[in-house]
Each structure stands twice: as C-alpha cells, then as structure tokens.
Design a protein around this nucleic acid. Sequence first.
RNA 1: GUGAGCGUAGCUCAGUGGUAGAGCGCCGGACUGUGGAUCCGGUGGUCGGGGGUUCAAAUCCCCUCGCUCACCCCA
Length: 424
Amino acid sequence: MAPKYKAPRGTQDVLPQDSWRWQRLEAAFREVCRRYAYREIRTPVFEETELFARGVGEGTELVHKQMYTFQDRGGRSLTLRAEGTAPVVRAFLEHNLGATGGTQKLYYICPIFRYERPQAGRYRQHHQLGVEAIGSPGPEIDAEVIALYHDFLAEVGLEGAVTHLSSIGCPKCRPALSQALRDFFAPHVSEMCEFCRARYETNPLRILDCKVPHDVELRKGAPSALDHLCDECREHFDGVRAALDALDVEYEVDPTIVRGLDYYTRTAFEVIHPGLGAKDVIMGGGRYDGLAEMLGGKPTPGIGFGSGIERLLLVVESSAVGRTFPCPPALDVYVAAASPEARVPAAALAAELRRAGLSADLDHTGRSLKAQMREAARMEARFAALLGEDELRGDVVTLRDMDSGEQEKVARAELAARLRTETA
RNA sequence: GUGAGCGUAGCUCAGUGGUAGAGCGCCGGACUGUGGAUCCGGUGGUCGGGGGUUCAAAUCCCCUCGCUCACCCCA
C-alpha cells in the first residue's frame, strides 16, 4: 500500500477494463457527427491565458478561480484548456475558416481542466465531446445541434435524458430582465438564503436556479427570462422551437436555465439525466453570437455544446445501456504450450495467426499448462490452440472450443483459415 | 474555498490498547498435457504519512496527505 506516486487529485487513469467504454462512446459520437457533416478539430491542450480571460469573461467563476494557469520558460502566461468553445473559435479566426462562406461545422473530443474540488461527476481533468457550428445566425442550426445530440444519445442507447431549453436574450434585452428581477425580489431580499442575497446583487438571474425550498416559493410569479426578450430574440426563440418540432426533437421550455460564461446569447440549453447525485447535467450549450468579436474577429454568430464524457459513462453504467454496450473484444485464440520445448513453436504459431488477422495471445512467464488454460478462460478466448510433443511431431495443433469444451486435432497449415471462418 | 464521512493484503472488509485477520483473487497440488465446479496448501500488509501518550498503538491525541459525498459552481 501507499505507493509513492498517485494520479493527481481530481484526475484518474482509464484502465484497460474501462477504456473500451470510452472507445465505444467516442465511436458513437464520431459516427453521428459524420452523418451531420461535422468535421473534427483538434486544438492545443493549452492556450494563451488571455483567450479564456477575454472570451469566457473576467468576472466568471471559471476565470476567477478555476483555471490551471502557468508561466512557460519564455514568460508567457498559458492556461490548460478550461473550456471547449473559445479555443475552437480562436482557431476559426486564426485560420480564417469563415472564408468559404456558409457554416463551419466542427466537433471535438478533448480533455478540459478546471481547478475545483472533486466530487461525483466532477473532476479537475475531465473530457468533453462537443460541436461548434460557426457562421449561421438562424434558429435552424440551433435545432440541428440539439438534434445531433439526441441522435448521439440514441446511438449510444441511452434513454431518460431530458432537454431543457431557454433563451437568455442578448445584450440589448438582458438589462431589462435583470432590472425586472431586482424589482420583483426587492421586498424579499431579507428572506432569501445567503447565496441568493449575493445573487441579487451580482446576477439576479441565478435566483431562479436556487434549490432552497423557501426561495423556490418566493419566486412564484417572478418575471421569466422569456418574458423580457426583445422582439428579435423572441422571434429567434420561436424559430428554434418550430425547428425542433419539425425535427421531431422533444424538449421542455425551462426559463430557469442560467449560463456561467459571459459569451452566451439567446439560445441556452442543457440535457439532464436524473439519478446521478448532484451533478445531473450531462450536456450544456448555447449560442455565442458575440464571442468572435470579443476575440478580435469580425462579428460571427455561433452555437455549440459540450458534454462530459465521465458523466455520460456514469449514466451509461447505472442504466440498462450497460448491457446493450458491446462487450470488450474477446480473444480469437489463446496459444498454449504443453511443455517448455513447445514455447518457441507456440510463439511462432501465434505470430502466424496474428499475421493472418486473428487476435492471438500466449503466456510469456513460463506458467503451467493449467495456468495457461485459466488465462485463456479469463481472457474469454474463443479457442485455445494446444501445442505439445505430439502436435509438434504430427505438425498439427489441438484446437479446443472454449465454450463447448470440444477439441480436435487440426493440421497446422489449415489452422488460420479454419479459425478465420469460425470467428467470422 | 466551506462542511461531513472514510483511509488495514491486488479487491471487499473485520479487528477500538496486548503475537495483524477473513472472503474473493493470485500461485501450486489433488488431475505427472487441459479453463470456468469442489477440496487442500501456499503467496501476500512500513494497518495512508509524520509526531505524541503508553511497559505496549491499526486501536487514544495532534498534524498532514489522500479518497468519497455535499455546498459553491459546472460537463
């Protein structure tokens, strides 16, 4: 016990017995992105600190105290990717991806770093899969992005997720909403929980997101974010709803949705999956029409989402989907040496089978035949190929079906072809 | 950043002042060339780390690190 080194706090190793789930999830996402014609973008794992500070917002919790920031040897301030959208928009601007006109549709699967206290479904290094559609202001693209995610969940086989949709307005209509909320809550400030009293000052929208029962009571009849949208934002929101209906995407209108990053405008959405403790949001996203301009580019609308892979896997493992996920790949054949003299020929046989496209393994530690057979069973090998004195003399192998226990002698020259048909 | 619970074998855990244990796993044997069943044997721990109290500490006290959950916030 007490090994000298452990993975840093809030990070984790994905071990071989788990990594196949990651691969399965990522493959499903790539497949759905392919159908929707989103193409992968890979950005650096660190960026100039300024990118996040500017793009995400100086006053946000994320920038204020959650960034992994360091100085490199040249004195530059760099920050591990704290969030998925700003780097993608930076790359979009840097390489002038908008030059071709139309919408740039991009997806990513990458690690995200935030200095937070870890808990269920929250890590200092976690991984997100997400998309960004840059260049289109219309509500149709908002609906497409949400539909893509729904199709992804269907591809994974996950049920029970609920999409919450709202609009948080634009810089033109948001001040009116904040003022309306302050007016409404002003008589009740002293009754509210300590956090909501702070929210009243900093961001009254967040009072709508509070879970304290008394505060939930207080906000009955409170102004809704959706009631104070300007005409353009209202029209856009209605357009998103109409497009979602046309695409047959189910959702709930939820005006309590709040965004933690400054760049969000208009459409905001979250996908919730219940039964995972306090962290039940598996996907969050929205529109960011002002971001490109904030980063020094020309005004370019955009929308996207990020979804936490660790949380998705938590949901998958606690639901029936775990059973529908394909099992880890079984081994085609385990080559067992019945005697020390057979070990080198066994290695040669394994190499031959591998070159024929089969997955084959064998013992490298000189264990007994019994132990080799145990290992074959543990690895869920479809077949075991036994090689001993008799087999070497007759240029054959004893082929054992690990499920039925039946075995027979097969000419070595025919083994690969035989196994290929049996395991096809 | 705040609060609570927990750190004993690879895993799950028992042991609350007196020689560190069980089950599972792993290795071997019964079956001298054959897995998943059974039985037998074996391997395995600076009891998270440091300091203190005591004749004696896994056990009591202090500090520290880590894990877990919750708050804040978020994927």
